[in-house]
Design a binder for these strands. Structure first.
Length: 261
DNA sequence: TGTCAAAATCACATCTAGGT
DNA sequence: ACCTAGATGTGATTTTGACA
């Protein structure tokens, strides 16, 4: 209860801009307003504040955002301070690992806590820029590993079974004249927890993207933004100039070849 | 055929029960 | 022990369909 009041207080005290843009959030990190930075990062990422976890139908106190805020201001601040410290030592793996162990924030999985790392990287102009690691950027990682012929790493990080399904499963976009097929469920690319390769996979992705961007002489977040592409929700975005579509096509083709579908 | 409203579908991530 | 499918709510978009 007290924890939620802390959140209410910052909402009341902030002149929240109509559009919550990156600059606004980066400044919160620069000013070391960790709790505010966290809350606005989550809102920027459109964290679910309405939908309770499985088994808690109708209970709004079991939504990811509520669970996270309920963890308390101090704990959240400590988590962000700890991850910043790891990043300052260029320890991407360590920063990632924190949020899965000692500084776990309930309701906040890798898709969301990597958003924190991303902003911390931007705010402090880190040497190696951390990136957001979610469903789509994991697909970018998969494709990079395939293209760079790192098949051992690919199957070490990601489940072989799930990879093979990427080119065969359910929904397809044949109406675009494409043969893209991809499973709709977001769990399709959950990283194998076996042997704790999760943070290693993340560090590998971040590193590859940083190297790639540096080779092209562009900023890594620009590269990510480009590769991430436009959402596919809207039909008008489903065309061959959308990088997501290109990505899916490439993955389909490459994984079908690799796994003999 | 055009219009508008109603109904259906989809995108998203986290967590956990249950299967192998 | 490892892995996977499914539940869960909302708002945006798309499809359906009623009617002139």
């Amino acid at each position: 209860m007290k924890e939620i009041r802390d959140f209410r207080k910052i909402i009341e005290n902030h002149n929240i801009p109509e559009i919550l843009d990156r600059e606004y959030i980066i400044n919160l990190y620069k000013e070391s307003k960790y709790y505010e930075a966290f809350a606005f990062t989550m809102m920027w990422g459109k964290i679910n504040a309405e939908r309770p976890q499985k088994g808690y139908k109708g209970d709004k106190t079991r939504t990811p955002f509520y669970c996270a805020l309920n963890h308390g201001k101090i704990n959240i601040e400590n988590a962000l301070i700890a991850s910043k410290k790891e990043l300052e030592n260029s320890n991407i793996k360590g920063a990632y690992q924190l949020f899965n162990s000692d500084y776990k924030i309930p309701g906040i999985g890798s898709s969301y806590f990597t958003k924190i790392l991303f902003f911390q990287g931007l705010a402090n102009n880190m040497e190696v820029m951390p990136l957001i690691y979610d469903k789509w950027t994991k697909l970018i990682h998969v494709e990079l590993l395939v293209e760079e012929n790192e098949i051992d790493k690919l199957t070490q990080f990601y489940s072989k079974n799930q990879l093979s399904k990427l080119s065969t499963e359910s929904a397809n976009y044949t109406e675009m004249g494409l043969s893209i097929k991809i499973k709709r469920n977001s769990s399709n690319l959950d990283i194998s927890i076996k042997d704790n390769f999760e943070e290693e996979a993340y560090a590998d992705y971040v590193n590859r993207m940083n190297v790639l961007a540096s080779n092209y002489g562009i900023k890594v977040n620009s590269l990510e933004e480009y590769l991430f592409g436009k959402e596919l929700r809207s039909k008008k975005n489903r065309n061959k100039s959308n990088p997501r579509v290109v990505l899916l096509e490439a993955i389909n083709k490459n994984l079908a070849r690799l796994f003999d579908n």
